[in-house]
Design a protein around this nucleic acid. Structure first.
Lengths: 251, 251
DNA sequence: GGCGGTAACGTACGCCGTACGGAGATATTC
DNA sequence: GAATATCTCCGTACGGCGTACGTTACCGCC
C-alpha cells in the first residue's frame, strides 16, 4: 500500500542527512540561510499529518515556508530523501521507556506504540520501505522491539520474525482505518452517504443464492463491528497473535 | 500503503459497471465501437502487472490500445472507476473449488489463494479499499472465505474477524515483498548494491553501545532470513496465527 | 574593494487526470 | 434517398506534479 517511495533516494546522501550532527555554526559566505533541513522536515510532517502524503508536494512545503519550490533543493536532494527524513523524524521518542512486564505485556506495549505512531502520523504506513530507512530513530525502534522479545529462549531469527509479525499486523489494521478516512476525504461522502448511494444495487450484491455465507454473516457482522471495525480487529487479532506466539514460547 | 484510490469513484456508476450484464447487441446509431470496457480493463491490468499502479496512466492505457487518451472516457468515467474494475476483474476464479479439509487446511488454502493473487498482481495490495469494491468477484471471494470458517462454532463477528486477520496478514507480507522489488526498479540498485552504497555509514547504524539488541540480532537474522524474508515471515506468521485461532476454536 | 562560495529562485520540460467541444460515422425515421 | 438523432472518438487546454538548469543576490574572507 505504498503511496510514495524512498527507494529513489541516493543512499549515501540519505544516510549523511539521517545521521547528520548538530548544525555546525561556522559562519559561511553567502546569504543568510532562511531554510534548513529541520524546518523543511518539520513543515512537511505537519502537512502530511493534515492532508496525507499524496497531497504533499515540494511546492506546497516551500509555499508553507514562504519560499520558492526550488529553494528546498538547496537543503534536500529530492522528495524521496525528504520522505526518508520525515519517516525517521517521527520515530523519535517512540519508546521513552523500554517495554516492561511479562512478554505478553511487552509485546502489547510494542503493538500499542506502533498503533499510536500510525494514528498520529497516518502517512507513515504509506511510506514504501523496500529499502530500510536506517536512521537513528528507526534503529532505536528496532532495538527496543527486539529487546521486548529477548530472553524468552527464542533464536535471533524467531525474535525478528515475531516483531515483524506484531508490527506488520498493527500496520495493516491502522492502514485499513486510515483508508476509510482517506475515502471520506477523497469522495466527500460519509460512509453512510456512500452506502445510501450504493444501496440501489445491493440486491445483486447480497444475493442469498449466490453468496449464502456472505449474506448470512455480513448483515450481522457489519452493524456489530459498526463504525469502528479497526479497533475490534486490532483487539481480536492481537490476542490471537499473542496466543500463537505463546505456543512457541511456552513449549 | 494505498497508492491509488477508488474512493473518488461515483458509487452508482461504479456499481453499474461492476455488475453490468453481457453486452446487449441491439444495434445503436453511431460509429462501430472499437473500444469496450473489457478491453480497457484487461489492458490496464496487463500494464499494472508489468509496471505497477504508479506507472499506470490513462494515456498509457489508451496508447496501448491505439486510441487517444480521451477515448477511454467514453467507456469508463475516470481512473478511479477503472481501478475498481481492474480490482474486481482479477478476483475472478480465485477459488475454483471451495477450500476443503479441516479448518486449518481451509484457512491455509485461503491464505495461499490470497498469496497467489497478490504475487500475480502486485498492484492489488496497493489499491486503497476505504470503500469496499462490491463487485461480483469480491463477493465470491468474501463468501468463500467466510465459508472456510463456517461451522466451527464461531459467531458471525468472529468469523469475519478471523478472515480479516488471515487476509490482512498475507497482504502485509506480500506488500513487503513487492516493496523490495519496487525499490530495486525505482533505484536501479540491487539490494546488494544498495547495501554496498550504504556500507560506509553502517558503523553508526550498528553501534553496539547504542543498539545492543539490534546489533546482536540483526547480523544473525539478516543473512539467515536472506533474500527471501517474506517467505519465511509468511510461513512463520501463518502458523502463529493459526495457533492463535485454534485457541478460540478448540475452547 | 574584489573574489568566491552559497542560498534562493524563475523558467521550462515532460509527465499527469480530465473538462470541453467538435468531427465523423451510423441507425432510425421520414 | 434524405434528414436527423445519437454515439464513438479525439484535439486542445488547464492546472497540477518533480526537478534540471542557469541566474541573481548576498555574504565572509583576503
Amino acid at each position: 500500500m505504498a503511496t510514495d517511495f524512498t527507494a529513489g533516494a541516493d543512499p549515501a546522501r540519505t544516510m549523511a542527512l539521517l545521521w547528520r550532527g548538530p548544525r555546525d555554526d561556522v559562519p559561511r559566505p553567502g546569504p543568510r540561510a532562511g531554510l534548513d533541513v529541520d524546518r523543511i522536515v518539520a513543515t512537511a510532517v505537519r502537512l502530511a499529518d493534515a492532508d496525507g502524503l499524496p497531497a504533499l508536494s515540494m511546492r506546497r512545503v516551500a509555499a508553507e515556508l514562504g519560499a520558492g519550490a526550488m529553494s528546498l533543493y538547496t537543503h534536500v536532494p529530492g522528495k524521496a530523501e525528504l520522505i526518508a527524513l520525515m519517516y525517521d523524524s517521527v520515530l523519535a521518542g517512540l519508546y521513552p521507556e523500554p517495554p516492561s512486564g511479562n512478554w505478553r505485556a511487552r509485546l502489547t506495549a510494542v503493538a500499542q506504540a506502533n498503533w499510536d505512531l500510525l494514528v498520529r502520523h497516518p502517512w507513515v504506513a504509506t511510506v514504501g520501505t523496500g529499502r530500510p530507512i536506517l536512521g537513528p530513530n528507526l534503529m532505536a525502534k528496532y532495538d527496543a522491539e527486539l529487546a521486548a522479545v529477548d530472553g524468552l529462549g527464542l533464536g535471533e531469527v524467531e525474535m525478528e520474525l515475531v516483531t515483524i509479525l506484531v508490527t506488520g499486523f498493527v500496520k495493516g489494521i491502522v492502514s485499513g482505518l486510515h483508508e476509510k478516512v482517506a475515502a471520506e476525504q477523497a469522495s466527500g461522502l460519509t460512509e453512510e452517504q456512500w452506502w445510501a448511494a450504493t444501496e440501489p444495487h445491493l440486491d445483486r450484491v447480497f444475493d442469498p443464492e449466490r453468496y449464502p455465507t456472505a449474506t448470512r454473516v455480513g448483515p450481522v457482522s457489519g452493524p456489530e463491528l459498526g463504525a469502528y471495525p479497526a479497533e475490534r480487529a486490532y483487539a481480536f487479532g492481537l490476542e490471537r497473535l499473542l496466543d500463537g506466539v505463546a505456543a512457541i514460547i511456552d513449549r
